[in-house]
């Protein structure tokens, strides 16, 4: 199978709907890039002459930098456009933006937007490939792919693993993309959160729901912590940081319920002392948080390569 046919999609808007073979292919390709990124000569020419625009309607440092680095390593011209969402009258302006970009002959657009579905709307209007860099509480597919790559490299496989996703599942696009990906690849997914931070009918997403960390983490292979946007949560969804950490923050005591070789993951940026104990986050025996960042660049290189290769094809 050639690389042109492994991923028959024009855009990468989400994990939901991808086939296991497509996910595996992206991960295999990413694996190659991990090795290349570690070699002395990292500059490649795969995307020479291509233009990638990072169009971010929401503040981001790590995701934007990761995409920028991925594009540049592949030899593309990368431009960052930071648009303050509050200054944008939504809807019409988003489409205006698409029209403007079309006129510039962009090849790949990486879009982050605070509204769920906004990236899909934009993708319907542009001629280029679109990668969802995170839309509202909907999906963040490259994060799920880099998480999967991290796990696969450490554990050798995804199927049969038990993964607990803990924290603010309600507002998390990372959780949704991970749930879809892990379920597609045959892992067992649990979510652990207070009821106020779970979406309604969460179990219908294909997860086992827990409200107690010790029970939820029992014998799991992977613990994925989510960022708590405490400045937005306090009082309404959770009473206090102190209470949140006491019941749902990951520390050594709660982690003891998991398998002895369980890995700890976090999409970043971390709130130390809110959702995760500071020492634990830095524990190189357990935490693969820094490794996730490294995998991120490789995964984004793979996505850029696959989507630019597909540009000349006609997908519906």
């Amino acid at each position: 199978m050639t690389r042109e046919t492994i991923f028959p999609h024009r855009h990468l808007l989400g994990i939901q709907g991808l086939a296991p073979t497509e996910i595996s292919a992206l991960l295999d390709l990413s694996d190659d890039y991990v090795d290349k990124n570690r070699s002395a000569d990292r500059k490649m020419t795969t995307l020479r002459g291509k233009t990638v625009i990072n169009l971010f309607f929401e503040n981001s440092t790590r995701t934007r930098t990761s995409f920028e680095l991925a594009g540049k390593r592949l030899g593309a011209d990368v431009i960052n456009m930071q648009v303050s969402a509050s200054s944008v009258a939504k809807g019409e302006t988003l489409i205006d933006t698409a029209m403007t970009l079309n006129a510039m002959h962009v090849d790949v657009l990486v879009v982050r937007h605070p509204d769920s579905g906004a990236v899909k709307l934009l993708s319907d209007k542009v001629n280029c490939a679109v990668i969802n860099g995170g839309d509202g509480s909907h999906e963040h597919p490259t994060q799920a792919l880099l998480d999967a790559l991290t796990i696969r490299r450490r554990k050798g496989h995804l199927d049969g693993l038990t993964v607990a996703i803990c924290g603010d599942v309600l507002h998390s696009r990372v959780a949704r993309s991970n749930i879809h990906l892990l379920n597609t690849m045959g892992a067992q997914v649990r979510v652990v959160a207070p009821r106020t931070l779970l979406p309604s009918q969460a179990e219908r997403l294909g997860v086992e729901v827990f409200h107690d960390m010790r029970r939820g983490l029992a014998d799991v292979d992977i613990v994925m912590m989510l960022r708590v946007q405490h400045e937005r949560m306090l009082g309404s969804f959770i009473p206090s940081i102190r209470e949140y950490f006491h019941f749902f923050g990951l520390d050594y005591e709660k982690l003891a319920a998991a398998k002895p070789d369980a890995l700890i993951m976090h999409p970043g940026p971390m709130n130390r002392g809110v959702e995760i104990d500071s020492d634990l986050a830095d524990d190189v025996e357990r935490s693969v948080i820094r490794e996730q960042v490294e995998m991120g660049v490789a995964v984004r290189m793979a996505c850029l390569e696959v989507l630019t290769a597909n540009l000349q094809k006609d997908f519906r």
Binding site: P194, G235, S236, P239, R242, E243, H246, F247
Partner: peptide
Amino acid sequence: TKQLEGKELSEIGL
């Protein structure tokens, strides 16, 4: 709710 104000949840777990 904190201070019985009906706005922010108190520390129900603790």
